[in-house]
Design a protein around this nucleic acid. Structure first.
Lengths: 341, 341
DNA sequence: CTAAATTTGATGTACGTAAATCAGAAATTC
DNA sequence: GAATTTCTGATTTACGTACATCAAATTTAG
């Protein structure tokens, strides 16, 4: 049987009340006594029974999830996962609330963050828009004692406690190597479709992509990035235009959302020429395109995993527990036609 | 606040004792009363507080993990993950014991399984050796009420409750497509190194691999499989021999363990010619080989995830709870040089 | 209709921890 | 050395559930 508070009390030769004071860092214990108790805790290897503790506290964890109100499949998926987490929340003693903010709007995000500073939830998860204002707002929250984790897009340089998302530079490099290898030493141009260079994850993917192509595939030329604002129609127009203008394009890397338009543009051209295409985010559209050969590989981040991980990390933080690092590492999934889930 | 047993009692107009009898399926409740209580449970949406229930029961879950005593990096890694789980077990109210059995030895495995039937643990996880005897032993256990999950290698056709591992046919197909695309339409032979055709996962990987090559890369010829028994020295000898004999070999697929020997053989040949290589299982050796270019891609299953998943599934089963399916799906990780963890 | 059997209610204890109260002991101050 | 102040102990209640016991009510059998 694992040791309990009673065992500590007996081992340290103090009362249960004193043990409780030490364990919960309540005042009214002399230094020497505190040391004695702490020694006993270490010696008998006591670990607090979190389930019992939470039961006694009657505690729930008010958490807030801030998601951008973007109309693309990826964000819809993320939203669905958050809702699923909300549905599970009573069982997990969490009390999750979601807040929607306009996408790409640092000011709105800051306003929400500052307001949450008043409400003082037990933790906040957000899809960060990368801006100094947001960074400062996050730092204010953290300094006031509210842990913050970023999801999908990180806020480097801030005091955020954790990032539940993929390494986007590595993602870009991986996309580059796949595309380069699949093209098998061919010479030509690569079109890159992004959402916006204002978001950090897109910038990082491009950076990783361009640098690896330059390093290892000198015969490939990365064309200036096309910004489709994650909007299907805009993406369609811009990509169709680029393909019409440049015959040298032999590959496409789509690093953002809004792939519906891209796929349409690619299919229009399918008769003319065969392009090698790597895209991000597995959705119904990209999945179908992968299966019919329009897309050659999809890089993906598992939104469900990201959401669950963010919640686990925040909860563990609130409980003062540690997490299993390997479990919280968000992997970059690579899907070919054959290993789709 | 979420409803409690008291709320059920009030809603159904019965006493707490009756609610308890219904909830825990104890005798002494009339059919009508039982129905009334169950209706109330549904109506107010009661869910048992598992933490409190387990606390009251003082329950722990005696689980058994059966792992093969194989001397290769993958199994060592798996063992390490099981040990890590054992270390966490007091916190998670599990009481995990590991049992080692000789690898590729159905009789030994059956003996262990039958003995566990006597001990009656709350659940069993095993790396299955595929054989009718083992299947029957597993079925006996399941029928006697002990849930069994398979890890890494499945036991199809048995009554096992769950499989925590990758789809090995899909893995083989994915390897084939990667190799085929990386070779960019070249013509030549592909050498395949396996551990043993007696293990199901190796057979399935080969099957997936060979079928996709036949379907989509007719210029590639899959040579008869080399069985290295997951042994580095044996693998080294056999691969070196094959490479010396056949100049037409342009690619290698290593679908088993014991890659140390393969890598050695490849390096010996490195000066002569450039081979495209896809291997399974990320270990210190394969990782180094991927980084230095000896291997082009590694397919991996996350042993830590598999172990944790198996335990979660068994625990949930013991508690009569459901799991989050997506969370228990073991993915096939594809690692290139750039997305190593 | 009574006796026996079955069903239900009331109540208490336990699990391991949190948190509060109050009394008593020790240390500190003057 | 007395009066404070600070620490420590003893005890109780609570969290939500499990489980046991005994009494009371209800149903069923004879």
């Amino acid at each position: 049987m694992r040791p309990t508070v009673h065992d500590i009390a007996a081992a340290a030769g103090v009362s249960l009340a004193t043990v409780d004071r030490v364990l919960n860092q309540r005042p009214g214990v002399r230094g020497v006594t505190r040391d004695k108790v702490e020694a006993a805790i270490r010696e008998i290897g006591y670990v607090r029974d979190v389930a019992a503790a939470n039961l006694a506290k009657g505690r729930t964890y008010p958490l807030v999830f801030i998601v951008p109100a973007s109309d693309n499949s990826f964000m819809h998926g993320l939203n669905a996962e958050v809702r699923a987490a909300v549905a599970r929340s009573p069982v997990e003693r969490t009390d999750i609330r979601t807040v929607e903010v306009p996408a790409f709007d640092p000011a709105a995000l800051v306003a929400v963050l500052d307001q949450l500073g008043e409400e003082r939830p037990a933790g906040i998860a957000l899809v960060a828009t990368d801006s100094p204002d947001v960074r400062e707002a996050v730092d204010r929250l953290v300094q006031s004692g509210i842990p913050v984790v970023t999801v999908v897009s990180d806020l480097t340089g801030s005091l955020r406690y954790h990032y539940a998302g993929v390494d986007n530079i590595a993602a870009g490099r991986t996309a580059a190597r796949l595309l380069g290898r699949f093209l098998g030493g061919a010479k030509g141009d690569i079109a890159v479709l992004a959402g916006s260079m204002l978001v950090r994850d897109h910038r990082e993917r491009l950076e990783g992509f361009a640098s690896l192509i330059a390093e290892e595939f000198p015969d490939l030329t990365v064309l200036p990035v096309i910004e489709g604002r994650d909007d299907p129609d805009m993406a369609h127009m811009l990509v169709a235009d680029a393909l019409a203008k440049r015959d040298a394009i032999i590959g496409v890397y789509s690093l953002g959302a809004g792939n519906r338009g891209l796929i349409r543009a690619l299919k229009d051209k399918a008769a003319d020429r065969r392009l090698t295409v790597v895209a991000h985010e597995l959705t119904a559209h990209t999945r179908a395109a992968l299966l019919d050969g329009t897309i050659d590989a999809i890089l993906n981040q598992d939104a469900g995993h990201e959401v669950r991980s963010a919640i686990r990390v925040l909860k563990a933080k609130a409980d003062g527990l540690s997490v299993i690092d390997a479990q919280e590492r968000i992997r970059l999934d690579i899907f070919l036609k054959d290993n789709l889930p």
